[in-house]
Write a protein that binds this DNA or RNA. Structure first.
Lengths: 340, 340
DNA sequence: GTTGAAAAGCGAAACGTTACGTTTTAGGAG
DNA sequence: CTCCTAAAACGTAACGTTTCGCTTTTCAAC
């Protein structure tokens, strides 16, 4: 049934090496080119990637290990990444490790066994231990959104300036007179939560105001989590006058909690959300939010990996790329009288 | 650097065939087993999947072609599918075709070239034309959530009883006295939209009430879409007394529109949503909704494909599996006085 | 016509497995 | 100690490409 290059060679009367050359974009005499193309059509020839991979030791496949496929931020990155990589003829194998470091290790070693050419990882585990098998196998790695503790020049990474993002947002609220700013973060052990918390505290330091611990709520980057965290902030004896929520799902949940509590934004409480300007645009017009360049992140990750993949195993130059976020000023915050 | 079975053979003094046998789970004399295991560790041997694939013509990889990765329903299915398939040592290549039939065709042919062992598809194009290359290559196919017009016994499919789901929900509202029921659907050309519309109309026929065209709104299965559609329903001169929204994102958008319009559910309007019981559970307690068995769908798809994959190319028995939905009765609807 | 360099074509040897058919080994029965 | 049988080990030929080092062809310039 399935035909091979040998069949093409026989049918055209050409040598096997010539067919191979043609298949790889080499130049062939025009009449032979036509000959080959006709034969390919007639025999419905599809090159055997297995044999090709065996010879070249290249799978033209990259692995992606993420903590959670059901998260908008992650999927939006994957969407653009996958698009770009496939345009360059790379297949993308996605492994969801459910924010579990054991599963994460398994996923990496699974992909190493599958001999992926490159690896993209949004790490759950900060130690980076799980990447060892890939490193040993010489597979180039690009980290997304989250950094690892020790990796010195062994991996590339594309992250966002989280400290700056949080600082800017907090600063903005403080300039408007807010001193009690609720902060809703993801899990405490996660890189981005830590950095965003750092930025928030920086602003407090800058304004020389002592932060209130109970206003900082570590949650879990889910809609329910954001909803619950907001509820608890609202239940505080001394309720915050403004809230900053640090991802898309939690922003949604928090907004719903506010709606439910009949609190008007910004009259009753000031609000800064996160991500997905376009989406909120239709629904909560004028929401002030920190916008991460999701499209650019995905694009940047793909570009980085393609660059590493192109370097023929020579000294690969690893880079840490930090992208800026943008504070999109809407109308969901307002100034308040500073306490005298 | 990389070691091969030949190296293991040399180091252990055993024959190549014996190593291969061991690697595939064959029995080996205990002392040889130890010998091999030690050698594997020492040489950090990783079997070369390329060579294996070349010999067996199996990639242990399946392709998934979907219209949109940024959709909760789709990702939740993928999550369980990927989990199950990977447990069986299959890698999953995901291709997002962005609801574009040209891209969909490209994705299928890309995957055929990658020689995936099986294909999972949530079709954008109802003609099924895009699956031809896979069919020709003898790759087993499982359709998810959406059926195709002509495919007779050539593919398997896992769908939900959409007609019944919509009929049940509409029926439930009508029994409570509602006659003007807003319906928010996905794109008109999509299988599930058509079926759900059919179910809705069935209920009207059953109750012998003429449906009002302007209450049926085809949208696009996004949050913004749901929001906009709900707004338009509310702007109608004769506003519906109840609304039925037919996917998760649109339910979210519609709820936000209601909140914004200061309409209380169920006092001002009755509401039936879709999907994600657990999630809404925390946020809109007691929402009445149609629950699709998302976990079961993913599981079922994976099981079907594994079954087809296990059948050694013999006459593969294709099946159409229809799963039932469940009407989860909460408190978001109420009875109204029937007009006299 | 020759000549010669550049372009195109060629044959054969890998790449690292699996699987077929055969030979060797182990160890209990006689 | 021999014989027998089942179990284990073995050698080797594929699988379908790419690539190396040559040989042949082409065609422009003399």
């Amino acid at each position: 049934m399935a035909s091979t290059m040998k069949d093409i060679a026989r049918l055209t009367g050409l040598g096997l090496a010539t067919i191979s050359k043609y298949m790889n974009g080499g130049t062939v005499r025009p009449k032979n080119k036509k000959l080959i193309e006709d034969a390919v059509k007639e025999l419905r020839f599809i090159p055997n990637e297995f044999a090709r991979s065996l010879k070249t030791s290249l799978s033209r496949t990259v692995g992606v290990v993420i903590p959670e496929l059901g998260n908008q931020f992650i999927t939006s990155i994957i969407i653009t990444m996958e698009d770009m990589l496939r345009k360059h003829d790379y297949a993308v194998i996605v492994c969801d490790c459910r924010t579990d470091s054991k599963r994460e290790s398994e996923a990496v070693s699974f992909l190493v066994h599958k001999r992926v050419d490159g690896l993209i990882n949004m790490p759950t585990d900060q130690s980076g231990e799980h990447l060892k098998p890939a490193l040993e196998a010489g597979i180039p790695i690009v980290l997304v959104d989250r950094m690892l503790k020790p990796m010195n020049g062994l991996v590339s990474a594309v992250v966002v300036d989280n400290v700056d993002a949080a600082e800017k947002a907090t600063h903005y609220l403080m300039e408007a007179g807010h001193e009690d700013i609720g902060l809703i973060l993801g899990n405490e052990s996660i890189f981005t939560s830590q950095k965003r918390c750092e930025g928030y505290l920086n602003a407090y330091t800058e304004f020389n105001i002592p932060p209130r611990d109970e206003l900082i709520r570590f949650s879990d980057y889910t809609m329910e989590g954001g909803y619950a965290a907001m509820k608890r902030l609202l239940a505080l004896p001394k309720r915050p006058t403004a809230v900053f929520v640090t991802n898309f799902e939690m922003t949604l949940g928090a907004m719903i909690a506010l709606n439910e509590a009949q609190l008007k934004v910004p009259d009753d409480i000031s609000f800064i959300g996160f991500d997905k300007l376009d989406l909120f645009g239709a629904i909560f017009p004028n929401l002030t939010l920190v916008k991460q360049p999701q499209y650019a992140i995905g694009e940047c990750v793909a570009t980085q990996l393609l660059r590493l993949l192109a370097d023929p195993h020579a000294e690969r130059q690893h880079q840490i790329i930090t992208l800026a976020t943008q504070l999109h000023v809407g109308g969901s915050t307002r100034g308040i009288r500073k306490p005298s």
